[in-house]
Design a protein around this nucleic acid. Sequence first.
DNA 1: TATTTACTCGATCAACTAGATAGGGTAAAT
DNA 2: ATTTACCCTATCTAGTTGATCGAGTAAATA
Lengths: 148, 148
Amino acid sequence: MLSKRAKYALKALLALAERPREEPVRIADLARDQHIPPKFLELILLGLKNHGILQSRKGKGGGYLLARDPADIYLGQIVRMFDGPLAPVPCASQTAYVPCADCPNEAVCGVHLAMKAVRDATSRILDGTSLADLRRQMDDASPPLPID
Amino acid sequence: MLSKRAKYALKALLALAERPREEPVRIADLARDQHIPPKFLELILLGLKNHGILQSRKGKGGGYLLARDPADIYLGQIVRMFDGPLAPVPCASQTAYVPCADCPNEAVCGVHLAMKAVRDATSRILDGTSLADLRRQMDDASPPLPID
DNA sequence: TATTTACTCGATCAACTAGATAGGGTAAAT
DNA sequence: ATTTACCCTATCTAGTTGATCGAGTAAATA
């Protein structure tokens, strides 16, 4: 299950990726446009900033802006930030591996085999898709009206 | 995250799939062999029975046994039984679709696009792998010692 | 039929987490 | 100087997960 936190983070980042890089966007505006509880979004954006995904400007005309090129921000990083490892079980995680206390032989464990496959497939998608990639997909899905 | 419930269920089913079909296995034995809290396993097996995956025999010599051929029991069904839909967000679920209240256009929603891809990949694995398939993988991973 | 065996089922519980809100503090523009 | 808007800590509640207890009931065997 994707947490609300991660979902809101992705929505906010995608909204930022759509606009010109240098214009800060206020929390309040982002919250209104994306239907996110403002105070909750505040927390989330702060987290993204502390992880180097966002920058912020204080005072009048301030707000948040992307710290990196959207093509260098991958969905996997965002999801992991808020929801932890992609793997359904710790023993199948690449980034946060923890063995099962009870499992005598991982290589022969059915749960491990199946969940490793799920993890790999998930990673292939989320670690292989950048904000820019996803924006492109979104734009392809709603092509601009032809000028006739 | 795979719940303990689902994990225990899979382990128990795989253990049952390894043995001859007609011999019931006692909860206590299954619990001991698979390192599962007995009373908790009780609950889980009962659930599997009520969903037609298992049969049970009462009294002496009783226990649980598979109600169907292991080749006809898919991991997806088990995981969904205990953990709900595979999709990370309800709007990306095939079996339990619920639209997002706030989302004006799903086709253009980045979160939807990405999570649908994750769901499809997960389903391809879990709905495409039966207990029998997985047992085969496990056996391949621990080949019997050569007879010299 | 008596008795043992082992499943059935309801109630309960502690621990944890997610989602969310409140309220004041602080940096930086104008 | 003052306004704007980010920064941070504390708090709350509602729900879920993992787990256990104990009594009840069906069925096989002696």
